[in-house]
Amino acid sequence: MIDPSGWDLPSLTDRWRSATPFGHVAIDDLVARAALDELRQGVSKEPHWPNRGEIFEMMASGPPQQPTPRAFLEALGGPAVRDALAAITGYRLQRVDGNSYVYLAGSYLLPHTDHRPGVDRRIAYVYYLSPEGAFTGGELDLYRCTTDGSGDIVATEIAATLAPRPNRLLLFDVGLTTLHQVREVTGGARISLAGWFY
């Protein structure tokens, strides 16, 4: 389903390394049009449950049960993609996980880092499924953080805003200060697959 042999690795590597405020890169047109359609159908059949907490409100699936989302995750975590991502990011990756998410109007994910002590998340990813114009809002903001001598974050500013384009895979670094948010969706349905490489 995902063929990284056509990726321009030197360019993607350069974009990852030169990205600010921290490593990130977008890979567009990730899968073929027919595969995208099948993925959309597969995700639409996954049950999604209301999910509300301190920093988020959206609908989330469990681990995918439908064949096409499962095949997507298998391809994403397969050796060809992991090798390509190792070349781009410098990380040796072992596996990937992911769920699907539906953000309706009023859904959001507030600024946070995906870093968890003892959990070896190296790269976070989001893959966008919604057709062009299917929703408004839902951009991914990356923050530049200023820390004090003890490592505490004392100032933050949005340094990059990444558009949630259909069939786009966004990858970004996971660390103590890799703050990011999903802006509130203001209309429509933002549907994505997201998770981490370990």
Partner: peptide, 8 residues
């Protein structure tokens, strides 16, 4: 006075 510290 506005307060804006993204993760707080």
């Amino acid at each position: 006075s506005a307060h804006d510290l993204a993760d707080r």
